[in-house]
């Protein structure tokens, strides 16, 4: 199990998750996350060699749909929910660089 989580780690994941934290929040969240992660350390004591991870409790495989067109949404309805619209498109502030 890795070392305890630090304020740097929390600042890093907050950035990855696009959350802005004040200094006070950073300190508080770090303490709280550390407590949860310390508790979670008990999974470390389990011997899981050879154990296959379970992503899903389901026995399903090959759930496929036919390639048949179904109605799309009305554009006006869709755009009515948007914070900003221009030229029938969703408008966003300028993009710096490429996040991909």
């Amino acid at each position: 199990m890795p070392r305890s989580i630090t304020t740097d780690d929390v600042a890093h994941v907050a950035r990855l998750a696009r959350l802005q934290l004040s200094q006070e929040e950073l300190t508080r969240f770090t303490q709280q996350l550390a407590a949860v992660l310390d508790h979670a350390r008990d999974v470390e004591s389990l011997d899981t060699t050879g154990v296959v991870p379970t992503a899903h409790a389901l026995p399903l495989v090959n759930v496929l749909r036919d390639d048949v067109v179904t109605p799309s949404l009305d554009r006006a309805t869709v755009l009515a929910e948007a914070p900003e619209v221009e030229d029938h498109r969703f408008r966003v502030p300028k993009i710096l660089g490429d996040s991909q």
Partner: peptide, 12 residues
Amino acid sequence: AYYGQAQKVRTL
């Protein structure tokens, strides 16, 4: 260490 191990606990 975290997600992978937790998924194995799930199996157990």
